[in-house]
């Protein structure tokens, strides 16, 4: 009896020791990767990390001091950039809308047990994988070449990516949906669209809307960035203001502030809306 426990503890301790060794080794590998990665990145960067570190606040200080001197311009500048901010928001909203609609179809078509053509589910899954993997900037730049500048290339690019990203999440939600309503609808002769519309959609709607809202937050940022590479919205204004350089820094500050406030406000409200959607705290 005592022998058995003794053997047990030695085995356990050996196991623990081995686990600790693995953990330490893993940590060492990780630290080495981080250090060498940092070294390589620092080496290939135009300016070094330690040379630049004390200059981090130079640019913000410069632009803010200039904006502070011309603070009288700021309200006017805010008004001036509101239209492009609205364009950025519109790009995000429309692409989220279209992306979410497409993602709904793709998700239902690729969910086991709900798919219209069960054999084609792997195909739709792969399609979503590829759509998710293509960065927005690739499509946006190609479309700018084809369609000229403006908000449409950015919208299509973001919607494409959104379809892939939301499709995966939507499908995970739909997988957990109760199939009983679907079976019930099937038994009374409902076709596929009716089964999905009345059987699945009411179950998944809160979670799907919550994911779509989260995506909307992400898409605002994406749409601002795509503006920077040439398709409308506030990113484009930021680029031109930066190219003017000194003398236009009050514009840069105004854009920074608008972008920051918008993101904060949208994040805040969508956070609350999502909490309400998912926790079911809707009207009692």
């Amino acid at each position: 009896m005592t022998d058995a426990t003794a053997i047990d503890t030695t085995g356990y301790l050996a196991l623990v020791r081995r686990k600790r060794l693995y953990g330490t080794l893993l940590l060492a590998v990780f630290a080495a990767l981080m250090a060498s990665g940092f070294y390589v990145a620092d080496d290939r960067n135009a300016g070094g990390f330690f040379d630049g570190l004390h200059r981090i606040f130079d640019f913000p200080a410069e632009i803010f001091s200039e904006a502070f001197q011309n603070w009288r311009n700021l309200p006017g500048l805010f008004l001036k950039f509101i239209p492009s901010l609205i364009e950025t928001l519109n790009i995000a909203a429309v692409s989220t809308l279209f992306g979410a609609l497409l993602a709904m179809a793709m998700a239902l078509l690729s969910t086991r047990g709900l798919a219209l053509w069960p054999r084609l589910t792997p195909l739709f899954r792969r399609m979503m994988d590829v759509m998710r993997a293509v960065p927005e900037i690739v499509i946006a730049l190609v479309l700018i070449f084809l369609l000229g500048g403006g908000p449409v290339p950015a919208m299509i690019a973001i919607a494409f990516h959104t379809t892939g990203a939301l499709g995966k999440l939507f499908s995970e939600v739909a997988e957990n949906a109760d199939t009983k309503p679907v079976e019930g609808l099937a038994s009374v002769g409902g076709n596929w669209v009716q089964r999905m519309w009345f059987g699945v959609l009411p179950q998944v709607a809160p979670n799907w809307s919550s994911y779509a809202l989260l995506r909307f937050e992400i898409n605002i940022r994406a749409s601002a960035i795509l503006g920077f590479v040439g398709s409308g919205g506030i990113g484009y204004d930021l680029k031109t203001a930066l190219q003017w350089g000194q003398g236009k820094y009050d514009q840069v500050v105004a854009i920074f502030a608008l972008l920051f406030l918008t993101i904060m406000i949208v994040d805040h409200f969508s956070d609350r809306a999502r909490a309400r959607l998912v926790k079911g705290g809707r009207r009692a």
Binding site: F38, V40, A41, D42, R44, N45, A46, G47, G48, F49, G52, L53, R55, I56, D58, F59
Partner: peptide
């Protein structure tokens, strides 16, 4: 502006 273009930035 602080670190110049590159992967570190």
């Amino acid at each position: 502006r602080a670190f110049g273009p590159g992967p570190l930035t």
